[in-house]
Design a protein around this nucleic acid. Structure first.
Length: 210
DNA sequence: AGCCAGGCTACCG
DNA sequence: CGGTAGCATGGC
């Protein structure tokens, strides 16, 4: 696929669905989207919530991850220190709706220990990838949506979209697909934010035909 | 009643 | 390296 074609796909999705307002943050009992506003996160609390959400939504519908976040907020546990202070069973119970609760409870605590040690510093991609439970998509989601870094996020929907567009790239490695998007788009976190969110919206509306 | 959802690790050849 | 079983709940 060529550069101009890729940009066409972006414009087409944006025209079809409009700005998506990612990353949704929990507010007054529900997830709030902010279409066209790329200023989030505006504080550490929101930043951490995005990181936790990125882990909780791994191979799970956002609905389940959102419920898990709501449970954590109800426990006043949506911070690294509070999550670390929860017993394993209490944490697992809270995040149960997100599935894989044994693994995700462990992943969250590993990430919380790391996050606390950052003390506000922006993590390197390689550091995130070295953590147990953080793979390439989660690392890029955290950097893009929590830190506004121009790292393109590749997921199963991205591969499906490439396939639907007739691109042979869909079988390639994560890094190769990521590189293709990053080399053919302006390196702007707002564009990467919107494009990935639009791809997910497209994926949700388009049944897999593999 | 299966199949799928905004993946990752462990382990295999 | 690439390929795949296991992880788990909830919605349709």
């Amino acid at each position: 696929m060529k550069k101009e074609r890729l940009r066409q796909v972006y414009r087409r999705l944006l025209a079809a669905y409009g700005p998506q307002g990612w990353w949704p943050l929990y507010e007054r009992g529900k997830m709030r989207y902010r279409p066209g506003n790329y200023s989030m996160p505006e504080n550490e609390s929101q930043r951490f919530e995005i990181c936790a959400g990125a882990i909780l939504t791994q191979n799970t519908s956002w609905k389940g991850a959102a419920r898990a976040i709501a449970n954590l907020r109800r426990l006043r546990a949506l911070s690294p220190q509070k999550i670390l202070s929860l017993s394993p069973s209490a944490l697992k119970a809270a995040i149960k709706p997100a599935g894989y609760f044994n693994q995700k409870a462990r992943k969250l605590k590993v990430f919380c220990r790391f996050y606390a040690k950052l003390k506000g510093r922006v993590p390197e991609r390689a550091e995130l990838l070295s953590l147990w439970g953080i793979g390439p998509e989660t690392a890029d989601s955290i950097l893009l949506y929590a830190y506004k870094k121009p790292e393109f996020v590749v997921d199963a929907y991205t591969r499906r979209l490439l396939k639907a567009e007739g691109s042979r790239l869909h079988n390639e490695s994560y890094e190769k697909i990521k590189g293709f998007f990053e080399e053919n788009l302006p390196r702007d976190f707002r564009l990467f934010n919107e494009f990935h969110a639009l791809i997910v919206e497209w994926g949700k509306r388009t049944k897999a035909t593999d």
